[in-house]
Structures are given as structure tokens and as C-alpha cells.
Design a protein around this nucleic acid. Structure first.
Lengths: 264, 264
DNA sequence: CAAGACGATTTGTCAGATAAATGAACCGGC
DNA sequence: GCCGGTTCATTTATCTGACAAATCGTCTTG
């Protein structure tokens, strides 16, 4: 489909400001505990009114990145308080030089909760959820473009999380999986690995369909091990591929663009 | 220590507003997709200026609860977009009649990631992290008040998560564990179960100290099973105990204004 | 009847002023 | 010289009032 995204005026002012400041914090320009320039200073730097700056800061406070008190100023919160599991924070994080470490952590989290989620899904799934998973799995096989395949891949994993029936798993996984659109992109390369990956996915689908939790858990572990393996042995991407990849944003942070995967 | 927290003026206005509106959303007064009253209306209702209301709404947007567009108004986002893994949202959620379901979900999440976290901790821990865990474990045993014991209990579990060395585990667990202060409170009752629980904790400590991931994983599973068991067979709390419990805030989101935990 | 213009409504942004909080400097008494 | 309270200056918090931008519904006109 590729809807030509209308840029409008380019997001709201305060969101742009939040993005600017937030990225800088994630990038480490302002260390935790450090004092931020005051509001007036930001007004000058970003060429916008104090209201806009304030709303941006309010937003960052809501995400646990900042904390301000009268007379003291606004300071960066310690890292533990950052709401890393937030669309925006995640996307700023991903734009950071730390990106590799980030992906490693994400992959580790997947190894922790996806097998269990699949097991739960095998137990709790209803037929509608099963259908969604199966369709996604089939779509992966029949996808003609890389983009479609990745979309179906994400949909597949989210379907499992949603079928697991734990309300934390869904939003949590949603973030992780969105972030991982990159990884799938990375991983989905040659036809050979592609076919292999497809059969791994189908095994998961089958286990859940047959309501076999232990098998589902094993199948997911296999898939993740395979993914790790592919990442491991991946030759460094060529400049061309890197540029191609750069075109799509990893996490669609803000509203106007409803993220691609809607399961209602 | 129990520092008498100075109430100040009672937190900032916009936070109070955010709390009011956010709680209502979590409670279901405003369903997802529904249109919120407009800003002017909130000004009247909450007796505050439009700026304060706007900053509150900005905050709720940052948490994924709302989304507003000019002329249309502000509407509640679908539940999947809510940032449930946020201190404030979590605390509003906990003040909801859904509280029981909430605790069940949380407990399930613990079963998913705490065993793995312990296994990772057994692998990656350094000696400082180990020391923190051991101290917490000892403090649990020697604590003289229920409050101290719970504090040490939370510290113990957080220590493990932090030793696991995954940056997502820490903030994530932080939220869950804070939320669970209630559960620990619930669970820590008779001397008998208390002594049993202590030995379960010590097994975990030992496994991590000896760098035995599989043993650590097993030990955590045992503890969680025990917790589930206690919850299961818990007689309904007496009114006195309930009142006593109500005294401490569950999630220390922003010091003063934690909503009273009503369980109807 | 259809397509485009227009008005009304609601959020977005701005500017300027006052209040509140609090660290730091200052001042007086001992 | 030192200690304690007091004042001051700085920064965020809040309020007020205004205009801009976006967009839904309606109205006009071909």
C-alpha cells in the first residue's frame, strides 16, 4: 500500500522539542543528575515559545527522563527511572550509537519471554486468535516483498503475545517487536535462510494450534536460536543495503501514523 | 526512618489533574475511543486554568492514554497503546476495581521473567552485585518489622534483576516489584510461612553465589510457586489488617498524592 | 445533486505577568 | 570568628488573554 505519508506541518512544535531534547539525553549529551539549560535558554535555542518548551519538558517528565523543581531547575533523572519501555524513548534510544547493545538486550528479552508467551498462548488461545496467528504465518510464506514479509512476521509474534492473554505481554511485546522490525530486516536475507525460518515459524503455529505448550516453547527457542545464529554470522552490511534500510523509521512513535500492526 | 514527608502544597496542579483524569480513564469512566470533555470543560470542573489542564493532558498523551487533534478534541487511545508499564499508570490501575486481575497478571509476569533473570544473574553477577543481594537476603531474615522485611524483600528481587545485566529487566522489574509490595505484604503473615519463605530466598542467594544458573532458576520457581500457593489459600484479610495495609503507598510514583487504594 | 466555500469549534502556540519555592548571600548577635 | 535567621535572586509553576491552525458540518452555487 505504502500510503504516501503526509507530513503536515511536521508534527507539533512541542513534540519536535521533546524529540530534540529527549534524543540528546539518550545520546548522553546530558548525563543523569546533570542540570539542563533553563527554559529561557531552550526557547532561544529552539526558536519557540516558552509554552512549547514547557510542554515538551512536561512530556519528558512523564516519561521519567526529567524532573524539575522551582528555583533548582530541571535535571536528568537517574537511568533506572527512565521509562525505557516507551515508544518514543525506545525510538530515541535506537537512534543512538549504543544501538548494537540495545538490539542485543532486546534479543535477550525475547529469549526470556517469547517462549513462555507461546506456551501460554497454546493454553489460552481462542479460535479467533488462532486464526490471526495462522493467517500471519501464511502471509509470511506468500509475501512477495521484503516489507510485507517483515510486517507479517511482526504480526505473527504479536498475535502470539496477544493470545497469551496477559495484558502486560501485549504492550511490552508491542514495543519490543516494533523495535525489532530492524532485526527481522537484518535477518531476512537469503532465500535459503528464509525458507528455513519459515518452517520454524510453522512449527510454532502448529504447536499452538494443537495446544501443546511445551512444544510451542521449544519451537520458539529454536527460532530464536536460529535468529541469533544468523545475526552472529552476518557479514557486515554493504553501504547500499544500509542506506536502503535507513528509509523506514523503526518505531512509529507518534499518533498520526497508526502503527502498521493493528489487531482489534 | 519514616521521614515525615512534608506535604508542601500537595503536588503540582497539573499532576493532580493528570491523576484525576488518568484514574478515571483507567477506571473506565472514559472508554477507549471516546471523546473527552474539552479543555474548557476541565478548567471548570477542576477549578484551574487552561495551562494546567493542558499540561496534564500533555502528560497523559506522553503515557499513551490520550491523543488529541485540533477541532476534533481529545480522545482516549485504544488500550493496546496505553503505556501500562509506567509508574503512574500502574498506580492508577492499581486503584481500580480490577486490582485483583491486575495482581494476577503481575504474578504471571514474574513467573515468566524472574527465573530467567536469576539464571542470568548467576552468570553475569559481579561481586558488588552479589554483596547487595546477600545483604538484602540477610536483612530479610533479621528484619524486626513487617515494613523492613518487605523493603528488604523488594531490594532482594531488584538486586537479582540488576545483576542480570539486561537494561530492560531493571526498569521493568522495578515497576512490577513496586507494585508487588502489596503482594509481599499479603503473603508475609504467619511466622511459619515466613520461615519457609526465608529458606527459599536463601536457596536463590546461594545458587547465584555459586554461579549455578539452572539451580537459581529452579529456586526462583519454587519461591514463586510457594507465593502463589500462599495467595491461593489465604483467608480473606480482616478489616483491621486491611486498614493497616492501607497506610503505605503501593507505588511511589510521585510522593504525596498516591490515590487511596480502594478495594471494594 | 454534487463540489467547493465558509463558519464554528477545538486544540496549538504565543506573549507577558504574577506566585511559589528554595539555594545562596547577607546581616546581626554572641 | 561563628551561628542562626532573614532577605534576595533565580527558576519553575500558574494564570490570563489572545491569535493561529486544523477540520467537521453546513451552506451556497453551478
Amino acid at each position: 500500500m505504502a500510503i504516501a505519508k503526509k507530513k503536515r506541518t511536521g508534527k507539533s512544535r512541542h513534540f519536535a522539542a521533546a524529540e530534540e531534547i529527549g534524543s540528546r539525553i539518550l545520546r548522553g549529551d546530558f548525563a543523569p543528575g546533570e542540570l539542563l539549560p533553563n527554559e529561557a535558554e531552550w526557547c532561544k535555542r529552539l526558536r519557540m515559545s516558552r509554552s512549547a518548551v514547557r510542554e515538551a519538558i512536561k512530556m519528558l517528565k512523564a516519561k521519567g527522563l526529567l524532573n524539575s523543581r522551582p528555583k533548582i531547575g530541571t535535571r536528568v533523572e537517574p537511568r533506572e527511572r527512565w521509562n525505557l519501555l516507551d515508544r518514543d524513548v525506545l525510538s530515541w534510544y535506537m537512534a543512538t550509537p549504543e544501538r548494537a547493545r540495545f538490539l542485543k538486550s532486546v534479543q535477550e528479552m525475547r529469549r526470556i519471554f517469547e517462549p513462555e508467551a507461546a506456551a501460554l498462548a497454546a493454553i489460552h488461545r481462542d479460535s479467533a486468535e488462532m486464526a490471526a496467528i495462522s493467517v500471519a504465518c501464511r502471509d509470511m510464506g506468500t509475501a512477495t516483498t521484503l516489507e510485507n514479509r517483515i510486517e507479517a512476521d511482526v504480526r505473527f509474534h504479536l498475535g502470539i503475545l496477544s493470545a497469551a492473554g496477559n495484558e502486560f505481554l501485549v504492550p511490552f511485546g508491542f514495543l519490543i517487536e516494533s523495535a525489532l522490525a530492524n532485526v527481522f530486516d537484518y535477518v531476512t536475507r537469503s532465500v535459503g535462510t528464509l525458507r528455513h525460518a519459515q518452517s520454524l515459524h510453522e512449527n510454532i503455529e502448529k504447536a499452538i494450534r494443537h495446544r501443546r505448550p511445551a512444544a510451542a516453547r521449544r519451537a520458539v527457542r529454536l527460532l530464536l536460536a536460529d535468529t541469533d545464529d544468523v545475526i552472529e554470522h552476518l557479514p557486515p552490511p554493504t553501504a547500499f543495503e544500509r542506506a536502503k534500510r535507513r528509509r523506514k523509521p523503526a518505531v512509529s512513535s507518534q499518533p498520526s501514523a497508526v502503527p502498521p500492526i493493528v489487531d482489534r
